[in-house]
Structure formats: C-alpha cells, structure tokens
Design a protein around this nucleic acid. Structure first.
Lengths: 339, 339
DNA sequence: TTGTATGCGTTATCAA
DNA sequence: TTGATAACGCATACAA
C-alpha cells in the first residue's frame, strides 16, 4: 500500500514541495492557477497527508485516548460510544484502551497515550489503582485529562460522574419503603470513588429511616467471578438479608445467579436492585429494578470538557466536576406486589 | 510532558546520537562500557523511544487494527479481548475501531489503518458493506488482513469463523425434535456471510426432517431496534410460528421483548433459541437455549493468523480458513418439559 | 568502536 | 508567487 507523498506530487507537477504543501493547506500566498493544478492532481491520485509525519512535527495527533477498565461491559462501551460521537463531531480521533482492572496495565496505557502524543485522555480508573502519583504528575504538567465514573477523589481534576450518592439513596430508600429490613449492599472495591459514594447514599437512606447500619451486610468485591458468587451465597447464609442492593450490573447478575442456585426466590425472599444500564434488565427473571446511569451522556460530556481543555478553552486552571442525574427504574425484583 | 530524546542523551553523555541509538538497540558494535553508561542514563531519565518517529522511519508500527461493527456487543468485545491478549503476548499493540454498521465509516477506518501504518488489520464486516472493491485492492497489495465472523464470502482471504452452518443446523434440529412444526428464523441482513451460513443450516435441518421451507417464516433484520420488534410481532401475528430461531443475541433479546409484550408464553406457545454467547442467557426469563460461539477464541485465532502473516510466516499466498465449533446449550426456552 | 550524514513526510522560515 | 532548507526523533550506511 504505497502512498503518495507531497514529494511525489511536486515531482509530477514540476513544483517544489513547499508550493504543493501551501496549495493543499489553502495558504493564500499562492496563485489560483497553481493551487487548482495541485488540488486537481491531489484529488486524482487520492493523496492523503501522512498523520505520522504530522504528529512528529507538531507533537500532537488530533486524537484522544479513552482508558476504561473493560470494554466487554455495557456501561463502558456505551460511554465510549458517547465519547466517540462527540469527538468525531469535533474533529478528533479516538483510541480505546482497556486496563482489565490492572493498575500496571493502566500505567502502560497512560505511557502509550503520552508516547503516541495523543492530545488528551479520558479515563475511568481500574479497580486496583491505589497510587495516583503518575496521574498527579500528568495533571501538574497540565496534560489534558478528564476522569469519568471512577474518579480519583483526592485529585483536583476534571470529573464527570453519575450522581452515585442520590442513585444509591433512591434505591435503598425504595427498598425500605417496600418494607425490607435487612438490606445488604454488594459493591465494588473500596478504593473506587463510586464505591464510596454509593455506600454513602446507602447509609444516608438507612439513617433517614432510623435503620441501623450493619457492616456485616456490606461486601466489597474484587473482580474475580468465582469468589463473587461464593461470597454472596455466604452473605445470604450468614446474615439472612431480605434485600440486596448492588453497585453494578455485573454484581447484580452475580446476585441473580447466586440466589437462583440457592433456590431462593426473588423478590419473595430477597429483593434485588442493581446499579446499571443493562439493556437486558427488563428481560431477566424477574425483571430487575435498577438505577439507570446515563452512560452515553457521561462519555459525551466528558469528551466535551476534554476537548475544551485541549483547545485551551478552560478557564485558568479551574476544574469542572459534572454530576449527571440517575433514575430509579422499578421492576419486579423489588416489588412487593409480587410477594 | 516533555520527553527525553536520543539527542538529549547524546548531549548529556558527550556521545553521538548513533552511539546512543546503538547502545539502546543492543547493537554489538559497541563497547561494553559505553553501552552500560548509556543504558544506566536511559534508565535514570526514563527515556522512551518515540514510536511516531519510529513509524515514520520504518513505515510500520508494531500495532494492528481491529475493526468491528459495534463494541457495545458482547460477542465483539469478547473477540477483541481474545485478540488483544494474543497480540500483546506477541508484542503488538491493538487499535480498536467501530463502524456502527456503516459502510462509509468502515472505509474510513480502513483508510485510517493504512494512514497510521498499522501492520495489519482484523475485521468483521458492517451490515451494510456491499462493495468489496477496496478490500480487494488491499488484499491484492498483500496488506495483512484477517476477517472474522462476518467475512466477505466472495473474496480470497484469511477467515476465522464459527461453524455457523452446524450451529444453525443443531439449533433447528433440536427444535424439530422438540416437536415444533412452524419454526421461524429471525436473522441479520442478507449480505452478511453469517446470515447465509446460518440460513443454510436452518434449511438443511428442515430438509433432513422432511419439513417444507417457508420463506414467510424468515425475516431479515437491519439494525433499527424499533422496526425489529414490530416485525417480530407481525411475524407472530401473520404466521403463527411455534418456535423462533434467531441469528444473534441482539435479535434473541428483541424476540423476548416482542413475545413478552404480546403476552405470549415462552416456551409454551413459542420456543426461542438464540445464537450468542451472552452471559445473561442463563438469567433470562425463561433461561434461553442458545448456540454458543467461542468469541474469545475466534479473536485469538484470528490475530495469530494475522501476525503470522505480518511476520511473513504465511505459505506463499495461501489463505487459511479456520472454522471453530459451536455448542448448543439447551435451557428452558426450548424445553418441552416446561410445557 | 565511534561519529557524521541522510532520509522518513511534513511545514515553517527565509531567500529569491 | 515560488523554491530551498531546516527541523521533528530515530536508525543506519558510510566514514573515520
């Protein structure tokens, strides 16, 4: 796949490379006739500027990176879709990276973003990232960066998140109003911002309704499937919860699986509420009550802020934190009618 | 984020850039002492070679592209995971692109792959790609390329697919053995290879059991959700099928939705069999019988062939077609016990 | 063993 | 208005 270069064009047209370049870039310091001559030829041979050469020269790429823990996850892939759509509109390419929940891989991805001279990065932290020092350095050097969903709570940076507190609050309060007394909370690793915020919402709802917070009812989960199911079973066995509020789609599905395998009935014995935007929530057995997150919008808003940042539209080092509303969608898995 | 270059190192160490370059690349034509000197300094300042400069010089990137119709699709994201894992093992980076089922976007992605000097590309065709001429050109120019899942059936090329014929045959025969008489087939656009192969399997099973093929029971679907549900409802109304075999996870979920909204019971009135590897199939109401595709393995095998190709291990222009087995997983949605 | 010079594709600067 | 040249970071052919 040999590609035509400016040099080829110059040779063919008996011009210098600079003239050709000028014609292509639409510089005004050039005669209309030459310009037309070049442009016609360009079209004819389907010349395409070499983005690698441009990147080398300009030290930028008109591309942004998106780093997520896992693309085989509807929330993240939808967020990516939102981001990509806006990025494209605004003339940027997108490079997608996944960390598979590994802090090392995350670091490698960031390095790659820098090495490839990407203009900025959108990221959601891995479940094992404890050390923010590299992120801090990048922020200090003013590398354009926006965090979404799983954000580093101790760092000053642009952040776009769902209203995790309110979402968790609504879900928990709903369960309380449905008469549930022992509400378990299955959640993500404690380092993540979403974990803390959702736990806070859960606690606040309990508190409002004068229910005691019982730490035994809260389980933090790593990303190992086999352990997850067993832990949930153990929790059900030990603590006899009458409801489970989970902090993610993945976990909610694991709950369904664990509960089913115990021959326990949803919602009769245990109600389940997820935190997700899974398309299938409605088709599960029973249909799952869930806190809907605006994944697409999250990605879209985040990339808008990022590109504003890249293009210097930020107001002198002020960081934006955007919080998008969640929505509780009530279905049978938490519905007392079904009891 | 200013990065250290070879020139910086040379200056700091009072050496020439070529010496530094040689030390880093481990050339042997260099004294051990200088080598150590350079390498130590390299480590100290955390020098990282500029991949852009390398790409410009070498006209390759040690990166491959993966073009899929949609990443928010479990089958494709799992295939990507398989591909990425192997690619990384073999020292290649992966760039992910999605076409959103648009032939134009697909062409743009391919152009980008070429412009960015990626070393090869793994691709699954969009549902609207009718014109293979560009692909043909790329193949003729021997650009390393492997198709997977949705492959161009008229083109000589490397292909990795699931055994779609057998999978569809097994699914249909299973329904027949369960006593179903009017088996509908909801499938993807007719241009796709998977559509043709799965239809052939469906027909072959009917034929084997002396059942007449009725074209009215087959519906080809584009990628517009709203229409899909209505068409399925219409089919049920017009043709009164007692089973639906769908050619994808997405379509199977739409069937569930449509059937539910008609207050028809699965599998009592209509059995459903999907073609998918959806994790949730087991948790649906009722659990869904499905033809499992080895998505991860598909991606992994495809990338292996691709990299063999890139590294010149291919046997003089012979194309490989790999067909991976599928597996029918029987659950309640097609089970007569439940009737 | 080390250094110098060149080129990859492009644009900016300066000269003509 | 056009052309020659340098530079971006790197590897390498060639010279020393």
């Amino acid at each position: 796949m040999e590609s035509v270069t400016i040099k080829d064009i110059a040779k063919a047209l008996n011009l210098s490379t600079s003239t050709v370049s000028r014609a292509i870039r639409g510089s005004y310091e050039i005669s209309e006739t030459t310009k037309k001559l070049v442009l016609d030829y360009v079209k004819k041979v389907n010349y395409r500027p070499n983005p690698i050469a441009l990147s080398l020269k300009e030290n930028k790429s008109r591309s942004i990176g998106i780093i997520v823990p896992e693309i085989a996850n509807n929330f993240f892939s939808n967020a990516i879709n939102g981001a990509e759509e806006i990025a494209q509109e605004r003339g940027y390419r997108v490079m997608i990276f996944q960390t598979r929940e590994s802090a090392e891989k995350e670091h490698a991805c960031l390095q790659h973003v820098l090495d490839r001279k990407l203009d900025g990065v959108l990221m959601s932290l891995s479940g094992n990232t404890k050390d923010y020092s590299f992120l801090e350095t990048m922020l200090k050097e003013e590398f354009p960066m926006v965090f979404f969903d799983r954000v580093p709570h101790t760092l000053k940076a642009n952040k776009v998140v769902a209203d995790n507190f309110q979402g968790a609050f609504d879900a928990t309060e709903h369960l309380i109003k449905m008469g549930r007394k022992r509400i378990g909370h299955i959640t993500s690793p404690p380092v993540l911002s979403i974990t803390k915020e959702r736990l806070a919402g859960y606690k606040a709802a309990l508190d409002k309704h004068n229910m005691e917070y019982n730490p035994n009812l809260v389980k933090y989960m790593e990303f190992d499937y086999s352990i997850i199911t067993n832990t949930i079973k153990q929790l059900i066995h030990d603590e006899n919860p009458d409801a489970l509020f989970t902090a993610s789609d993945r976990l909610a599905l694991s709950c369904y699986g664990a509960i089913k395998s115990l021959k326990v009935e949803i919602p009769k014995q245990i109600a389940v509420v997820g935190f997700t935007n899974l398309k299938v929530a409605d088709l599960l057995n029973p249909p799952m009550t869930t806190v809907k997150q605006p994944a697409f919008e999250l990605g879209a808003e985040a990339v808008n802020i990022l590109i504003d940042n890249i293009e210097g539209k930020k107001k002198e080092q002020s960081y934006r934190k955007l919080e998008l509303p969640t929505q509780l969608i009530i279905r049978e898995s938490s519905d007392n009618e079904a009891i």
